[in-house]
Computed example of a mutant assay.
Amino acid sequence: MPSDMIQLDQRIHPTSIVIDKETKPTIPLVPRTRTDQSTPFERPLPPFLSLARPPKNRNCCCRVICCIISLLLIFILIIGILGLVFYLVFHPKVPNYSVDRLRITDFRLNLDLSLYARFNIRVTAKNPNEKIGIYYEKRGKMSVWYKNTRLCQGYFPDFYQGPLNTTAIDVSLSGQNQYGNTLMQALQQQQQTGNIPLDLKVDQPVSIRVQSLKLGKVRFLVTCKLTVDSLSSNNLISIKASKCKIRVKL
Protein backbone atom coordinates (compact mmCIF):
# COMPACT_ATOMS: atom_id res chain seq x y z
CA MET A 1 0.00 0.00 0.00
CA PRO A 2 1.23 3.39 -0.66
CA SER A 3 2.80 5.28 2.21
CA ASP A 4 0.35 8.19 2.15
CA MET A 5 -2.56 5.80 2.72
CA ILE A 6 -0.83 4.40 5.72
CA GLN A 7 -0.53 7.85 7.24
CA LEU A 8 -4.23 8.56 6.69
CA ASP A 9 -5.20 5.44 8.59
CA GLN A 10 -3.15 6.45 11.59
CA ARG A 11 -5.00 9.76 12.12
CA ILE A 12 -7.08 10.06 15.30
CA HIS A 13 -10.59 11.34 14.83
CA PRO A 14 -12.36 13.09 17.68
CA THR A 15 -15.14 11.27 19.34
CA SER A 16 -18.44 12.86 20.34
CA ILE A 17 -19.11 13.39 24.08
CA VAL A 18 -22.69 13.27 25.29
CA ILE A 19 -23.57 15.65 28.17
CA ASP A 20 -26.70 15.13 30.19
CA LYS A 21 -28.66 18.38 30.08
CA GLU A 22 -30.55 17.59 33.28
CA THR A 23 -27.37 17.51 35.30
CA LYS A 24 -26.64 20.98 36.75
CA PRO A 25 -23.75 22.13 38.86
CA THR A 26 -24.61 22.33 42.56
CA ILE A 27 -24.08 25.49 44.61
CA PRO A 28 -23.48 25.10 48.34
CA LEU A 29 -26.28 26.56 50.50
CA VAL A 30 -23.84 27.96 53.05
CA PRO A 31 -20.83 29.79 51.73
CA ARG A 32 -17.56 28.29 52.68
CA THR A 33 -15.66 30.22 55.28
CA ARG A 34 -12.27 31.25 54.28
CA THR A 35 -10.08 31.04 57.27
CA ASP A 36 -6.81 30.52 55.57
CA GLN A 37 -7.40 32.82 52.60
CA SER A 38 -8.49 36.04 54.40
CA THR A 39 -7.11 39.19 52.94
CA PRO A 40 -5.16 41.72 55.04
CA PHE A 41 -8.18 44.09 54.97
CA GLU A 42 -10.67 41.56 56.38
CA ARG A 43 -9.98 41.41 60.12
CA PRO A 44 -12.51 40.23 62.70
CA LEU A 45 -13.86 42.82 65.18
CA PRO A 46 -12.77 42.57 68.80
CA PRO A 47 -15.32 40.91 71.06
CA PHE A 48 -15.84 44.03 73.21
CA LEU A 49 -16.97 45.97 70.15
CA SER A 50 -19.24 43.32 68.75
CA LEU A 51 -21.36 43.05 71.96
CA ALA A 52 -22.76 46.41 73.13
CA ARG A 53 -23.22 46.48 76.90
CA PRO A 54 -24.52 49.46 78.91
CA PRO A 55 -22.05 50.90 81.38
CA LYS A 56 -22.48 49.89 84.98
CA ASN A 57 -22.24 53.45 86.37
CA ARG A 58 -25.29 54.54 84.43
CA ASN A 59 -27.35 51.67 85.79
CA CYS A 60 -26.32 52.52 89.37
CA CYS A 61 -27.33 56.19 88.94
CA CYS A 62 -30.72 55.20 87.54
CA ARG A 63 -31.34 52.88 90.48
CA VAL A 64 -30.39 55.58 93.02
CA ILE A 65 -32.69 58.13 91.36
CA CYS A 66 -35.58 55.65 91.28
CA CYS A 67 -35.08 54.86 94.98
CA ILE A 68 -35.05 58.56 95.92
CA ILE A 69 -38.22 59.27 93.94
CA SER A 70 -39.95 56.26 95.50
CA LEU A 71 -38.99 57.39 99.02
CA LEU A 72 -40.29 60.91 98.34
CA LEU A 73 -43.59 59.58 97.06
CA ILE A 74 -43.94 57.34 100.11
CA PHE A 75 -43.12 60.27 102.43
CA ILE A 76 -45.70 62.52 100.73
CA LEU A 77 -48.27 59.77 100.97
CA ILE A 78 -47.62 59.28 104.70
CA ILE A 79 -47.86 63.04 105.34
CA GLY A 80 -51.13 63.19 103.43
CA ILE A 81 -52.59 60.31 105.41
CA LEU A 82 -51.52 61.84 108.74
CA GLY A 83 -52.98 65.22 107.73
CA LEU A 84 -56.27 63.59 106.78
CA VAL A 85 -56.45 61.71 110.09
CA PHE A 86 -55.62 64.93 112.00
CA TYR A 87 -58.36 66.83 110.18
CA LEU A 88 -60.98 64.13 110.73
CA VAL A 89 -60.18 63.74 114.44
CA PHE A 90 -59.59 67.35 115.60
CA HIS A 91 -61.42 69.47 112.96
CA PRO A 92 -58.91 72.37 113.05
CA LYS A 93 -60.20 75.92 112.48
CA VAL A 94 -58.38 79.22 112.07
CA PRO A 95 -58.89 81.85 114.80
CA ASN A 96 -61.15 84.88 114.39
CA TYR A 97 -59.83 88.42 114.82
CA SER A 98 -61.54 91.79 115.23
CA VAL A 99 -60.32 95.34 115.94
CA ASP A 100 -62.34 96.70 118.85
CA ARG A 101 -60.64 99.97 119.68
CA LEU A 102 -58.26 102.44 118.08
CA ARG A 103 -56.79 105.44 119.92
CA ILE A 104 -54.23 107.90 118.57
CA THR A 105 -52.02 109.33 121.31
CA ASP A 106 -49.64 111.26 119.05
CA PHE A 107 -49.91 112.35 115.42
CA ARG A 108 -47.78 115.34 114.40
CA LEU A 109 -45.22 116.83 112.03
CA ASN A 110 -41.67 117.23 113.30
CA LEU A 111 -39.35 120.12 112.46
CA ASP A 112 -37.72 118.05 109.73
CA LEU A 113 -41.20 117.59 108.16
CA SER A 114 -41.32 113.92 109.14
CA LEU A 115 -44.59 112.51 110.46
CA TYR A 116 -44.61 110.83 113.85
CA ALA A 117 -47.54 108.61 114.88
CA ARG A 118 -48.39 106.60 117.98
CA PHE A 119 -51.45 104.32 118.04
CA ASN A 120 -52.99 102.11 120.72
CA ILE A 121 -55.05 99.26 119.30
CA ARG A 122 -57.11 96.57 120.97
CA VAL A 123 -57.49 93.31 119.02
CA THR A 124 -59.72 90.43 120.08
CA ALA A 125 -58.63 86.89 119.14
CA LYS A 126 -61.04 83.94 119.37
CA ASN A 127 -59.94 80.33 119.28
CA PRO A 128 -62.91 78.24 118.00
CA ASN A 129 -61.14 74.88 118.36
CA GLU A 130 -62.31 72.46 121.03
CA LYS A 131 -59.13 70.36 121.25
CA ILE A 132 -56.39 72.65 119.92
CA GLY A 133 -54.49 75.37 121.79
CA ILE A 134 -52.39 78.13 120.23
CA TYR A 135 -49.01 79.42 121.42
CA TYR A 136 -48.40 82.99 120.20
CA GLU A 137 -44.62 83.11 119.97
CA LYS A 138 -42.35 86.14 120.45
CA ARG A 139 -41.53 88.76 117.80
CA GLY A 140 -44.95 88.85 116.19
CA LYS A 141 -45.34 92.11 114.23
CA MET A 142 -48.34 94.45 113.89
CA SER A 143 -48.42 97.53 111.68
CA VAL A 144 -50.89 100.18 110.46
CA TRP A 145 -50.82 101.34 106.83
CA TYR A 146 -52.45 104.13 104.87
CA LYS A 147 -52.61 102.84 101.30
CA ASN A 148 -48.98 101.77 100.63
CA THR A 149 -47.38 103.85 103.39
CA ARG A 150 -46.67 102.44 106.83
CA LEU A 151 -47.66 104.81 109.63
CA CYS A 152 -46.53 102.84 112.70
CA GLN A 153 -45.46 99.38 113.87
CA GLY A 154 -45.32 97.35 117.07
CA TYR A 155 -44.92 93.83 118.44
CA PHE A 156 -47.69 91.38 119.20
CA PRO A 157 -47.35 89.96 122.74
CA ASP A 158 -46.57 86.28 123.29
CA PHE A 159 -49.11 84.20 125.23
CA TYR A 160 -50.94 80.88 125.20
CA GLN A 161 -54.57 80.69 124.13
CA GLY A 162 -56.44 77.58 125.17
CA PRO A 163 -59.31 75.88 123.33
CA LEU A 164 -62.54 77.89 123.03
CA ASN A 165 -60.82 80.92 124.52
CA THR A 166 -61.31 84.62 123.70
CA THR A 167 -58.46 87.02 124.46
CA ALA A 168 -58.26 90.82 124.09
CA ILE A 169 -54.77 92.15 123.30
CA ASP A 170 -53.68 95.80 123.64
CA VAL A 171 -50.77 96.74 121.36
CA SER A 172 -48.86 100.03 121.27
CA LEU A 173 -47.57 101.07 117.84
CA SER A 174 -45.23 103.91 116.86
CA GLY A 175 -43.47 105.05 113.73
CA GLN A 176 -41.96 107.92 111.78
CA ASN A 177 -42.26 108.67 108.06
CA GLN A 178 -39.88 111.02 106.27
CA TYR A 179 -42.49 112.17 103.73
CA GLY A 180 -44.61 113.64 106.48
CA ASN A 181 -45.71 116.87 104.81
CA THR A 182 -47.13 115.14 101.72
CA LEU A 183 -48.66 112.37 103.80
CA MET A 184 -50.29 114.79 106.24
CA GLN A 185 -51.90 116.76 103.42
CA ALA A 186 -53.33 113.57 101.89
CA LEU A 187 -54.72 112.46 105.27
CA GLN A 188 -56.30 115.85 105.94
CA GLN A 189 -58.05 115.78 102.58
CA GLN A 190 -59.27 112.24 103.27
CA GLN A 191 -60.43 113.25 106.75
CA GLN A 192 -62.82 115.81 105.28
CA THR A 193 -64.85 112.93 103.82
CA GLY A 194 -65.17 111.28 107.23
CA ASN A 195 -63.93 107.93 105.85
CA ILE A 196 -60.21 107.19 106.18
CA PRO A 197 -59.13 103.72 104.97
CA LEU A 198 -56.46 101.98 107.05
CA ASP A 199 -54.90 98.54 106.85
CA LEU A 200 -53.93 96.63 109.98
CA LYS A 201 -51.42 93.83 109.25
CA VAL A 202 -50.24 91.11 111.64
CA ASP A 203 -47.40 88.65 111.00
CA GLN A 204 -47.48 86.27 113.96
CA PRO A 205 -45.51 82.99 114.43
CA VAL A 206 -47.56 80.42 116.37
CA SER A 207 -47.26 76.84 117.54
CA ILE A 208 -50.16 74.39 117.74
CA ARG A 209 -50.81 72.34 120.87
CA VAL A 210 -52.85 69.16 120.57
CA GLN A 211 -53.62 67.84 124.07
CA SER A 212 -50.12 67.70 125.65
CA LEU A 213 -48.20 67.63 122.35
CA LYS A 214 -46.72 70.86 120.93
CA LEU A 215 -46.40 70.73 117.16
CA GLY A 216 -44.22 72.75 114.77
CA LYS A 217 -44.47 76.47 114.05
CA VAL A 218 -46.61 78.15 111.41
CA ARG A 219 -47.35 81.82 110.69
CA PHE A 220 -50.65 83.64 110.91
CA LEU A 221 -50.87 86.46 108.36
CA VAL A 222 -53.80 88.68 109.33
CA THR A 223 -55.04 91.66 107.31
CA CYS A 224 -57.83 93.90 108.64
CA LYS A 225 -59.48 96.52 106.44
CA LEU A 226 -60.54 99.47 108.63
CA THR A 227 -62.50 102.64 107.97
CA VAL A 228 -62.23 105.35 110.64
CA ASP A 229 -63.76 108.81 110.88
CA SER A 230 -60.63 110.82 111.79
CA LEU A 231 -57.00 110.68 112.90
CA SER A 232 -57.12 113.31 115.60
CA SER A 233 -54.76 112.67 118.48
CA ASN A 234 -55.93 112.17 122.06
CA ASN A 235 -59.39 111.21 120.81
CA LEU A 236 -61.14 107.89 120.65
CA ILE A 237 -61.43 107.06 116.96
CA SER A 238 -64.72 105.69 115.67
CA ILE A 239 -64.26 102.48 113.65
CA LYS A 240 -66.97 102.54 111.00
CA ALA A 241 -66.04 99.25 109.29
CA SER A 242 -63.72 96.38 110.10
CA LYS A 243 -63.11 93.16 108.19
CA CYS A 244 -60.25 90.77 108.96
CA LYS A 245 -58.86 87.89 106.92
CA ILE A 246 -56.31 85.30 108.03
CA ARG A 247 -53.93 83.20 106.00
CA VAL A 248 -51.79 80.35 107.36
CA LYS A 249 -48.22 80.12 106.05
CA LEU A 250 -46.19 76.97 106.70
Rank of each mutant, 00 (worst) to 15 (best):
R108K: 14
G162S: 12
N177F: 13
E22F: 03
T223G: 05
V202R: 03
V171A: 08
A241K: 15
I246N: 14
P31A: 15
N195V: 13
P197E: 07
I246R: 13
S172L: 06
C66D: 03
P92S: 08
F48C: 02
N195F: 09
D158H: 09
L226F: 01
V171T: 13
K138A: 06
Y87I: 08
G194R: 10
D4I: 06
T167W: 00
L71I: 14
L88R: 09
T26S: 12
S143D: 05
F220C: 06
S174M: 12
I65R: 02
Y97P: 05
I239N: 06
T182V: 14
G133K: 07
L213T: 07
P31T: 15
C66V: 06
L45K: 11
Y135T: 02
W145L: 11
I81S: 12
D106Y: 03
D170R: 15
N129C: 08
L49P: 00
K217V: 04
Y160L: 09
M1Q: 08
K243C: 06
R103S: 02
V222F: 01
F119Q: 01
R150W: 00
R63N: 02
Y136S: 11
P95M: 08
R34F: 08
V64N: 06
L102T: 01
V218A: 15
V171C: 07
S238M: 13
S38E: 15
Q192Y: 01
K93S: 06
N96F: 13
I246C: 15
V18G: 00
R122A: 05
